[in-house]
Amino acid sequence: MMYLKSSYSIRDKYLRKDMLPTIFCPGCGIGSVLQFTLRAIDDLGLSQDEIVWVSGIGCSSRVPGYVNFDGLHTTHGRALAFATGIKLTNPDLKIIAFMGDGDSAAIGGNHLIHAIRRNLDVTAIIINNFTYGMTGGQVAPTTLKGLRGTTAPYGQFENPFDIAQLAVTAGANYAARWTVFNYLQGINSIKKALQKEGFTLVEFLSPCPVSFGRRNRMKTAPELIRWYQKITVPLAKAKKMKPEELEGKVVIGEFADRDRPGLVREYREYIKRAKKMMGWEQ
């Protein structure tokens, strides 16, 4: 069972030993989400040769370099556009897009919206650390109001994006958000996401003590955990709360779980339609 398998066995099975150690700082949450993803893959018994990991640029996007799968580490924000080409060319491949919040929702925001709108058959795993970790702690489109980053040193004055909700609105088949401390829910969500057709997305609030925490009086991961406990609200509870009460909170849970046809299926139908319309096929 996945819950019992040691992290060592997961590590030995899936990581590229020659690429270790990772670039991740002590206390960083990205490694936990990587572990969840690998456990989900392991538990589903998916083959390493049927999955391609795609990423953009950022700390989170370095993940595909550490796993022993095919991987495409692309340009900042563009992972899902690259994934579109891979998936439509070889629909047998499963694609995991591992992205940061800045990568997916700022510079890559347009690709995110449109990949979801098309229902591109991809599982997006998004590391939301409320910041640009790799470049040293600038504000991200997810940074909550009042939080500090080097480019809003007096506290963020813009409204944040809710990535998981955006996915629901744009039409994702599955959208969920957890923190890296929701171990079981996190793994189960990724398992669900990997098994579904169409666009599936799992967002994780993930501690970045170095670039984010340090600038917001939370120098260590435990302090960030306590803060997550304060700001997160489970979906069931949130449903009973007034909008004012939810101000500054982050709702966690499963937001969408549906089965609309994915892009691959739609395109296959489109080919059939084209051939019929041209009289090439009955």
Partner: peptide, 21 residues
């Protein structure tokens, strides 16, 4: 496929090439 912009277009093309097309 019609992409959302030309950045996405060339990106999809590169992805397709790595998938063998």
């Amino acid at each position: 496929i019609q992409m959302e912009d030309e950045i996405g277009s060339i990106a999809a093309v590169i992805g397709a090439s790595w998938a063998g097309a």
